[in-house]
């Protein structure tokens, strides 16, 4: 609407200044830290820091656990929200109660919900009691490798609603007549889901997928709630733990280097997701 950049300045200035000061400049400036040794002379060391961080066992453990947790959480979140949105779409216009309930946790402080989680997943708590009803062994949910499960469930509980809402609005934009026509032609429910719903929902599906990963990568809160700042269980040691430790030791060389390595990994992953979305769209559209 307004053509002159001169007019835009006053609006952009506060935000732009903040983004530059807190993100842009230090992000570029931090590269200097990652290629110097941080000693008094501060010598240039090239890629030495990158090699040493990459080979560091704690970094590897944190990265591996963060990646594993996200690769479990993100697809689960994606599938579960698609199924729920599809179910919700079937029963419309009813389902308002479910929609409100499923979105509510997104606004809730999971920090306070933790109290209930600690009771539910206690060794003598209701979840184990339910398991015992079905004749299964009790599980140590809060200590040991199984502690991942309450962590993942807390994450899903909180983030499900957001993805369901996005999927739902995608499903709503698919014209009803397509389904009616398909039913007349004798297409089965499964065929309709894969031939109509899925192709038309792929753009939103891509978005939900990306957002699932963005949220899953930063998984740490849930781990901190259940296992504390210094988890005893090695499977719960995440990248955030590594970053915090390095930060507390004032090891800025390692913090910056680890951040750049992780940023590259994240963007490579998003690039792969983006390309697979493009080819999926092509396949679905060009199928017939």
């Amino acid at each position: 609407m307004y053509k002159k950049f001169r007019l835009a300045w006053p609006f952009l200035l506060p935000g732009l200044a903040g983004l530059l000061i807190f993100y842009g400049i230090p992000f570029v400036g931090g590269i200097w830290y990652s290629v110097t040794d941080g000693k008094v002379q501060n010598a240039f060391v090239g890629l030495e820091n990158y090699i040493s961080v990459w080979n560091n066992t704690m970094f590897q453990m944190g990265l591996k656990n963060t990646m594993e947790l996200s690769l479990i959480c993100a697809p689960l979140l994606f599938l579960l929200s698609f199924v729920l949105a599809a179910g919700l779409h079937r029963i419309r216009p009813a389902g308002g109660f479910f929609r409100s309930s499923v979105l509510l946790p997104y606004l809730m402080p999971s920090s306070a919900i933790l109290l209930i989680w600690l009771i539910w997943f206690d060794f003598r708590g209701p979840v184990n009691r339910l398991l015992a009803q079905f004749g299964a062994e009790r599980i140590d949910w809060l200590i040991g490798p199984e502690a991942r499960i309450p962590v993942i469930l807390l994450f899903l509980w909180k983030n499900l609603g957001f993805c369901v809402v996005i999927f739902m609005s995608a499903l709503q934009s698919i014209p009803e007549s397509l389904y009616e026509y398909a039913t007349l032609e004798g297409a089965s429910f499964m065929k309709q889901t894969f031939r109509i719903t899925l192709p038309l929902a792929v753009p939103s599906a891509f978005l939900v997928g990306i957002l699932s990963f963005v949220n899953a990568f930063r998984i740490f809160k849930e781990v901190y709630f259940i296992a504390g700042a210094y988890p005893n269980e090695p499977l719960l040691y995440t990248l955030q733990n590594y970053m915090s430790n390095m930060f507390n030791q004032l090891s800025y060389q390692n913090v910056t280097t680890a951040a750049y390595i992780f940023a590259v990994i994240v963007f490579v992953l998003f690039g792969v997701l983006f390309l697979s979305q493009r080819s999926a769209l092509k396949r679905l559209n060009g199928g017939d």
Partner: peptide
């Protein structure tokens, strides 16, 4: 992710 943006901050 936060682990990356916290560093410039």
């Amino acid at each position: 992710p936060f682990q990356v943006t916290m560093v410039p901050n």
